[in-house]
Design a binder for these strands. Structure first.
Lengths: 71, 71
DNA sequence: TCGAAGTAGGGTAATTAGGGGC
DNA sequence: TCTGTCCTAATTACCCTACTTC
């Protein structure tokens, strides 16, 4: 998986689509669940996630949308 | 470790590998956090950084990529 | 030289991870 | 099995002002 860090810190994939990272709370609002549930989804592999150097979880907006659309 | 700062903000090592320097905002967007948080990571030693003569922080793209892939 | 944007500090409130129990 | 809630410690976001960069 190749990605490019853009001039503004954006995250660009091979397809040229600019992506951004969402917090657990933001993802929780999308699905109407508790942020803790989103965290559990990460541990069980139900949703892809990225960890900050300190260990907190972030989620790619494109993947969240894909799950919402019947991933 | 000897290195040369290029005209476009590039960073060239002895191995000839060009490494771009990223601003706190760019790194912040890449990890989905506040730029202030990236600055904090520098002080706590979670991410290697380079300081400009005036004291501002910059980060090597290769280091950021390494951290994103699990440090 | 001017204005807009970004950054470094500090201080405080909010969020998160993790475990445990329901 | 899955989820929401309670707890603590750690981490982060947002507020401000002054300085730097473009």
């Amino acid at each position: 998986m190749t990605s490019i860090i853009g001039p503004n810190g954006t995250f660009t994939t091979e397809t040229g689509v600019t992506d951004r990272l969402l917090t657990p709370t933001e993802v929780a609002r999308f699905f109407g669940v508790d942020p803790k549930t989103v965290t559990r989804w990460s541990r069980t592999g139900r949703i892809p996630s990225v960890r900050t150097p300190s260990g907190q979880l972030r989620y790619r907006e494109s993947e969240v949308r894909a799950l919402l659309n019947g991933g």
